[in-house]
Amino acid sequence: MVSVINTVDTSHEDMIHDAQMDYYGTRLATCSSDRSVKIFDVKNGGQILLADLRGHEGPVWQVAWAHPMYGNILASCSYDRKVIIWKEENGSWDKMYEYTGHDSSVNSVCWGPYDFGLILACGSSDGAISILTCSGDGQWDIKKISNAHTIGCNAVSWAPAVVPGSLVDQPTGQKPNYIKRFVSGGCDNLVKLWKEEDGQWKEDQKLEAHSDWVRDVGWAPSIGLPTSTIASCSQDGRVFIWTCDDPSGNTWTAKLLHKFNDVVWHVSWSITGNILAVSGGDNKVTLWKESLDGQWACISDVNKGQGAVSSVTDGQQNEQ
């Protein structure tokens, strides 16, 4: 059954804007308007504050854990226009790198698949997207896509490291040739796909469906199937699921998941890529699943108090 396994009181002094667990699900990072990032050990239902990271001078919007093969690394982005990459060494967390190349609030950070090394995409309200690549020896290589989204970029999400398009058509005798790709959403109401060609980032696709700012995008993890899937959500209350079966990756079709009554802020895919968590201004979390016939259905609605997540509310009420 779905059950609450932990309730973490973060003691943040202001509202929380993001919470994310690491790769193994043993640590929780949270960030808040109180300008801090906190890391908790949440193993076995416990909650031990491991670090209270101060360094941002504005509300911290988002955090992102890097793949553990590079160590315990966390990135955070803030209203103060900075991106800070934190690293744990010998049990203490310190700044590994501070990126100040944006002219306005940095709204989103996302680590790329580990196959590409330590690579971070950052989307900012100055309209640009930066791609930071760790070149070892503590150096970071920066590529910037200026004016990626007019007015501002609100979200970035990497594509999984799979061969674009059909997996079947790969030439044999070679290692698969992964192409770095990510998706971004912005205040121009667009979802844009980017890919790296000859070391340069190029706009690959422009997906139009939303009628207001795109607030979040999420590229679904791949389990090895040839379909690429992206979820996008917007101020207009709509959530779209974009899919592409086309080997060349050019034909994306949109399917409206649902139209909510308020802004939708966040979409998140389960590890198998078949469940989508949607949250927004209405303070609710809903889970959506694609049935075998390709229809998306809400499998839980916190508000309805039925289905699997009824136990969420049950859990809450039991606590009371």
């Binding site: 667990m21 607030r215 802020w265 966040h266 895919w269 949250s279 609710k284």
Partner: peptide
């Protein structure tokens, strides 16, 4: 700013 959110983790 987002004041609520859900994320699949681990």
């Amino acid at each position: 700013p987002r004041t609520s959110g859900a994320r699949f983790c681990g």
